[in-house]
Design a protein around this nucleic acid. Structure first.
Length: 484
RNA sequence: UCCCUGAUAGCUCAGCUGGUAGAGCGGGUGACUGUUAAUCACCAUGUCCGUGGUUCGAGUCCACGUCAGGGAGCCA
């Protein structure tokens, strides 16, 4: 019986060997020797019929930027009945020999012995994805089909490459990935408008004797929302595991209709213990360089396409950032530089005011010409948890500004001293009772710690040279639109 | 939420000072000795976003609405 099983396995493996399923990436990168019998599966990009009575099929499977060319000879039994009916978007499974290409555009191609058609395109005339340049606005309306385009295939692969690089960066440095909650009952995060989470019957709300909505009857026994940040939660894990980070979905119910905002986006928030603002800035610099280097190394094919179609500087911008050392600049100095710049700004720079995007871009693009970390902002424009500096006016906050975009990362050293944290809560009219567990972290073995946050999609936009954040996430959620 | 701009064929867009619509691509048919978003010929395409209004007549002018894009604010 064992022998029979072995024999069976051998036949199976030899059959698999005879018809090895390969990806376009494997075939085109030279991983598969010429002469190998292969099967490729994917979707037709274009069909070109030759004068010689054969057809060229560009078959894309998403494994790399390029499609694999399959040569379908006229002798195929289903040539007239099916192959000649293939249009953009049809799905096929082609088997044949991987051969050196006789044509010019590619090194290898598949000389097909069979072309199995899985699915034709129902109505080719109305199939939205045609082999031509579509506007990104139009493609947003067909978000379920846009991954079949060059642009969204490339964005999706680059996005994946970046996500993997981010996890690898932290993992290699001993960070622990902490999954902070998506549902939160704390209504005092203060980072923005929140989406309510409730199972109450909206048409028949339970009321308290005073006539207010009785959230005690709701699922969690109190009001609940979708998270706007995992930072406060991850600080608790930081003060036990020393180096931690979050990487997960985040929600903001703000009515923002811009190219930079999503209602649902992914955020990355590292947090390090026994660390000050300088260590935080260094981590941010290392982080960006690592992620950009990974994309430059792993996704040259997709980046080249962005250079062609989206942004000529897509590659040079990344290379410049990776090769530069980030300047450190005090907020006070930055304001002085702006005041003396002689530059005409829409908003005048003034100490005590937050830097406008035009100010940030002047600093990083014109004044320094490299990425800049601006540090120590006025405390009145920053959040309650940021650590107060000895001058009594500023907090240990930082923004990383990059050429071409402005702010890309925001972070701070956190206030680890309970009396000073409570003082800030009172100044900002926040109720310390709502921050019980957060205050505990300062009561039980508090240490200096710091962290930063960044929106993943904004980083994707920057890397790909995109103009609109809605193209950096598969299914964008924005005010008034949650289709698909 | 505020300001600006736009909506014409499956897609990208043209359509002047009002006279009931065109081009490229895509699709169909045919031709063509390996093509590269192939080429060539022929064919078909339309609630001109919706509702009112002005006018002899509205794709074009006006009002309202809907949707989209850009900018601002908020922010990641």
């Amino acid at each position: 019986m064992r022998r029979a099983a072995r024999r069976c396995a051998r036949t199976l493996s030899s059959r698999v060997k005879a018809m090895q399923v390969v990806s376009a990436k494997q075939a085109l990168s030279g991983q598969v020797p010429v002469g190998t019998e292969v099967t490729v599966r994917g979707w037709i990009r274009t069909r070109r019929d030759s004068k010689a009575g054969l057809s060229f099929l560009a078959v894309s499977d998403g494994s790399c930027f390029d499609a694999l060319q399959v040569v379908a000879p006229g002798e195929l039994a289903n040539y007239a009945s099916e192959v000649l009916k293939l249009t953009s978007g049809a799905s096929v499974e082609c088997s044949g020999t991987l051969v050196q290409s006789q044509g010019k555009g590619q090194s290898v191609e598949v000389q097909a012995k069979s072309v199995v058609v899985h699915g034709l395109v129902d109505d080719p005339e109305t199939y939205p994805i045609q082999p031509k340049q579509h506007s990104l606005e139009f493609l947003r309306e067909v978000a379920h089909l846009r991954p079949r385009t060059n642009t969204f295939g490339a964005v999706t692969r680059v996005r994946h490459c970046m996500a993997m690089a981010i996890h690898r960066f932290f993992h290699e440095r001993g960070f622990v990935w902490v999954n902070t909650p998506i549902i939160t009952a704390s209504d005092a995060e203060g980072a923005g408008q929140m989406f309510r989470v409730s199972t109450l019957d909206l048409a028949n709300l339970p009321r308290t004797p005073e006539g207010k909505i009785d959230f005690a009857k709701d699922f969690f026994g109190k009001e609940a929302f979708l998270t706007v940040s995992g930072q406060l939660n991850v600080e608790a894990y930081c003060l036990a595991l020393s180096k931690v980070y979050t990487f997960g979905p985040t929600f903001r119910a703000e009515n923002s209709n811009t190219t930079r905002h999503l209602a649902e986006f992914w955020m990355i928030e590292p947090e390090i213990a026994f660390a000050d603002l300088a260590a935080d800035a260094q981590l941010a610099e290392d982080f960006l360089k690592y992620v950009f280097t990974a994309v430059l190394q792993e996704r040259q094919d997709d980046l080249k396409f962005f250079v062609e179609r989206q942004d000529k500087a897509a590659i040079t911008r990344l290379e410049a950032l990776v090769g530069s050392s980030f300047e450190r600049l005090d907020y006070g100095e930055a304001v002085k530089i702006l005041e003396k710049s002689g530059q005409k700004f829409e908003f005048l720079p003034r100490w005590g005011q937050d830097l406008q995007t035009e100010h940030e871009r002047y600093l990083t693009e014109k004044h320094v010409g490299r990425p800049v970390v601006v540090m120590n902002y006025p405390k009145d424009i920053k959040a309650f948890y940021m650590r107060q500096n000895d001058d009594g006016k500023t907090v240990a906050a930082m923004d990383v500004l990059a050429p071409g975009i402005g702010e890309i990362i925001g972070g701070s050293q956190r206030e680890e001293r309970l009396p000073l944290l409570d003082q800030r809560l009172r100044e900002l009219k926040l109720d310390p009772a709502h921050y019980g567990w957060y205050r505990d972290l300062r009561r039980y073995g508090s240490v200096p710690h710091a962290g930063f946050g960044l929106g993943f999609e904004r980083l994707v936009v920057y890397v790909c040279g995109l103009a609109n954040i809605r193209d950096a996430i598969p299914y964008p959620r924005v005010p008034g639109a949650a289709a698909f």
